[in-house]
Simulated scan of single mutants.
Amino acid sequence: MLVLLPPSETKADGGDGPPLDHGALSFPELNPVRAKLADALVELARDVPASLATLGISERQRDEVTRNAQLWTSPTLPALRRYTGVLYDALDMKSFTRAGLEKAHRRLAVTSALFGVVSATDPIPAYRLSGGNSVPALGTVRGLWKPVLEPVLQGIDGLVVDLRSGTYAAFARLRPDAVTVRVVTEDADGNRTTVSHFNKAYKGRLAAVLATTRAEPSTVDQLVKVIAKAGLTVERTGDHSLELLTG
């Protein structure tokens, strides 16, 4: 089983790992594009105004440009410690046991504008690049990744659970049997609507359940049983679609 997570705009500072080495990352087929993007961001960082415009950030965020300038030399952290925010707080990687971390490395992956996709414990530096950005001389991030990322993700064996956001889902289509999860709320009349406020938190909780379970679900029905056993309310709404209820 592989669970695909979205990244976060916010990243933790610092790190205790060696500088970026693409050879240490999972999915080595993506390394040529990874290197091309990293080099482009470092070069772009020489021009702060151009970087701010390209990245869609303000002068108050110019530290993000400094991060990009130091991509090849700054320390690294495991991906699940580098990404921060609501989803990753709910995931709570720090609470994982050693066995849980080993499972997380096998089962969790994060989509990324800079790296395409990385496994949970892959060592990465802090950086700034979003899925909707365009990089000078390279074009849109989405357009750069789609031809190379799609065959990699479609070639993954076993059950795939797609928790990506819309921006990063557009990077690559998955196989038709990939499982999608919609976080919904239900009113007194039984009407369900997609939620935004709790979406990331519930996806983080779900990812933690799937990362650490002793079970090895290989079918949608087995996946539902694992989620329900963990105390989350889930319903199957299609051959390969689930709804996760808040509340």
Rank of each mutant, 00 (worst) to 15 (best):
L129V: 10
V234G: 07
E43M: 12
A208V: 01
D13C: 00
A201G: 02
E43L: 15
V220I: 15
T233S: 13
A120N: 08
V179I: 15
R34M: 00
P136G: 15
D21T: 09
D162P: 00
L138I: 03
F115W: 02
D13S: 01
P6Q: 02
V209C: 03
L77Y: 04
G139F: 05
A208E: 00
A90Y: 11
E9M: 06
T76E: 04
G14E: 09
S165R: 02
D187P: 08
A50G: 14
S119V: 05
R98F: 04
D157E: 14
T246C: 07
A170C: 04
H105F: 02
S95Y: 12
Y88M: 09
A99V: 09
V226E: 04
W72N: 01
V117K: 00
G56R: 15
R142C: 13
F27A: 06
G139N: 11
D39V: 15
E29K: 01
G143D: 01
A45F: 12
S8Y: 06
G14P: 08
S74V: 06
D21R: 07
V118Y: 03
L242M: 14
V141C: 02
R81G: 13
L87C: 07
A104R: 05
R173F: 11
L37E: 00
D89C: 07
R98Y: 03
P7Y: 05
D162W: 02
N199Y: 03
G158L: 03
T212G: 06
L153C: 04
V48M: 15
Y88R: 05
V141R: 01
N191F: 03
L206M: 04
P32S: 05
L91E: 08
V148Y: 05
D92C: 10
P176Y: 04
Q222M: 10
R192G: 07
R164N: 02
A137W: 13
A50H: 12
A113E: 02
V3E: 03
A79D: 02
D92I: 15
V141M: 02
D239P: 15
G85V: 12
P125G: 00
A211I: 04
